[in-house]
Amino acid sequence: MIASEIARGLMGIVAFIGIGWLLSENRRAFPVKPVLVGLACQIGLAVLLTRVPAITAAFGAATHGMDALQAASRSGSSFMFGYLGGGRAPFDIGDPSATFIFAFQGRS
């Protein structure tokens, strides 16, 4: 399974470089060296950000901080705006999707 994911990723890289070559104005002067250097930088950055424990721990701490901020803002909006901000509704809800208010509860 991992080998197929790697193969799919490599095919995507080759496809993007191929599209760049096809859309270039002068295909004979296609800058291979800068493309390979940029690709090596991207791979190095990906390895650095996903495999170095100190960096992944820093991203984990930042994620924890953002989760705390999101929970605090959800709590504050439900305190300020009641059920419109995500708090308990003072009535029985027949359709839970009908109580969704994008301005307060919309998130990714």
Rank of each mutant, 00 (worst) to 15 (best):
A29E: 07
L49E: 01
G20T: 05
V32W: 08
V32K: 01
P34D: 03
A68V: 15
V52C: 08
G76E: 11
K33H: 08
A54D: 11
S77Q: 13
L23R: 05
R74F: 13
T63G: 11
F30A: 06
S73D: 14
Q70H: 11
A72D: 13
Q70L: 14
C41M: 15
G44W: 05
A58P: 05
I43R: 05
S24M: 03
E25Y: 07
A58S: 13
L69T: 06
F30W: 07
A57I: 08
S77D: 13
R28S: 11
R51D: 02
I43P: 00
K33W: 09
A57W: 11
L45P: 04
F79Y: 11
G44N: 07
E25K: 11
S78K: 07
P31C: 04
T63A: 13
P31T: 03
S24A: 12
R27A: 02
V52G: 06
V35N: 00
V32R: 00
P53A: 10
V37C: 00
P53R: 09
A71L: 10
R27N: 05
I55P: 01
R27W: 02
F59W: 12
A71W: 03
G65Y: 14
S24F: 01
T56S: 05
C41G: 14
A54T: 11
N26V: 01
A72K: 14
F81L: 09
Q70M: 12
I55F: 06
V47C: 09
G65F: 14
A57N: 12
L69G: 03
V37Q: 09
G38K: 07
A29F: 03
S75T: 12
S78T: 02
F79N: 09
W21N: 01
L39V: 02
T50N: 07
S24N: 07
T50E: 00
L45D: 04
A54C: 06
G20W: 01
M66I: 14
A29P: 03
G60D: 14
L23S: 09
Q70T: 13
F30D: 03
L49R: 00
L39T: 02
L36A: 13
G38V: 00
A46P: 03
G65A: 15
R28L: 15
P31H: 06
W21F: 10
A54R: 10
S77E: 13
S78L: 03
S73C: 09
V35A: 04
M80E: 11
A57M: 11
T50D: 01
L48I: 06
R74P: 02
A58T: 12
S77V: 09
L36W: 00
V35P: 01
P53D: 07
S77F: 13
W21L: 10
S24E: 02
G76M: 13
A54E: 12
T56K: 00
S24D: 09
G76A: 11
C41R: 11
S75R: 13
V52I: 15
V52F: 10
I55D: 05
I43S: 04
Q42I: 15
P31K: 05
A40E: 10
P53T: 05
V37A: 09
P53E: 04
